[in-house]
Amino acid sequence: MNLFAYTILAGIMYGIFFGLVGLGLNIIFGVLKMINLAHGDFIMLGSFLAFWLYDLLGFNPLLVIPVAVVVFFLVGVPLYYLFVPRLLKSKDPEMLSFILFFGVSQVIEAVIIFSFGNNQRSIPSNVFGAAGFDIFGQRFPSAWLVTTLVSLAAFAFVYWYLHHTRMGYATRAVMANRDEAMMSGIDVDRISAFVFSMGLALAAIAGVFSFFIIGAASPSMGPELTTLSFAIIVLGSLGSPLGTVLGGLIYGVAIMFMQSYFSSWADILPYILLIAVMLFKPEGLVGKAARSA
């Protein structure tokens, strides 16, 4: 019973974080209808940014968040204008963007190996204090609580952005129909560049906290994280950012149960989930109603 309660609680905390892992990918898909195959590598970049700032300057991971936002907007906007408008005009945007971002993923991985070596890096989980905290008599590391709160804050921010700001309103229009949004006078490229950068920044923030949930970061972890993120957003609902949290929760609880009860098969779970959902419930679990969110 104890193990069961622990598993559920840990699964929920994990799940909220995994929602954040998929959020950036889903928000970009929502606006561009493209799969950012370098998503996992941007998560990895976030991890290495956090590691570097911690190692060199002793930065607390929470302080890395604003840095990541600035850095990835500086990276994201030019990257968007360099690639995306051209891709959208090509004869097969879905497939070509997929391949192009795969190339980007390879470049990022190589550059990080050049800069940091092909080693695993980590930040000790006691940066947020060694004490830990109790929920319903179960003890969890403080880093988990911080990670969960940061992830929830990220979702709250995206919700606020989409539903309570002018740009968010325009973003939802672009998500619903790019061409119509353009006709109605929305600067679609400006909105898309902004959301694209926001997606990268969210991925990086997930990377900053991945040390405490996933473990050590390595330059080659990108593709695996991309597949995992894709599984999560397909579970939730493609193109509906807030549905991601549901996908994250299902994955988080499921992976916790696997680790507690069938640990040797736990690694395989995201892949099986991905294939199963794509084949049997391709519209995702949230379905149509939440799609427009």
């Binding site: 799969i35 195959l37 097969d92 879905e94 497939m95 963007s97 997929f98 593709p223 695996e224 597949t227 894709f230 599984a231 040797s264 098969w265 690694d267 395989i268 995201p270 892949y271 099986i272 991905l274 294939i275 794509m278 084949l279 391709p282």
Partner: peptide, 26 residues
């Protein structure tokens, strides 16, 4: 998997190969 189109097929196939790897290496 061939029912899936474009990028969805590609990523599902990637997942399938990873799953197979984890089964064989288990």
């Amino acid at each position: 998997l061939l029912r899936l189109s474009g990028a969805y097929f590609a990523i599902a196939n990637l997942a399938a190969s990873q799953a197979l790897y984890l089964v064989v290496a288990n």
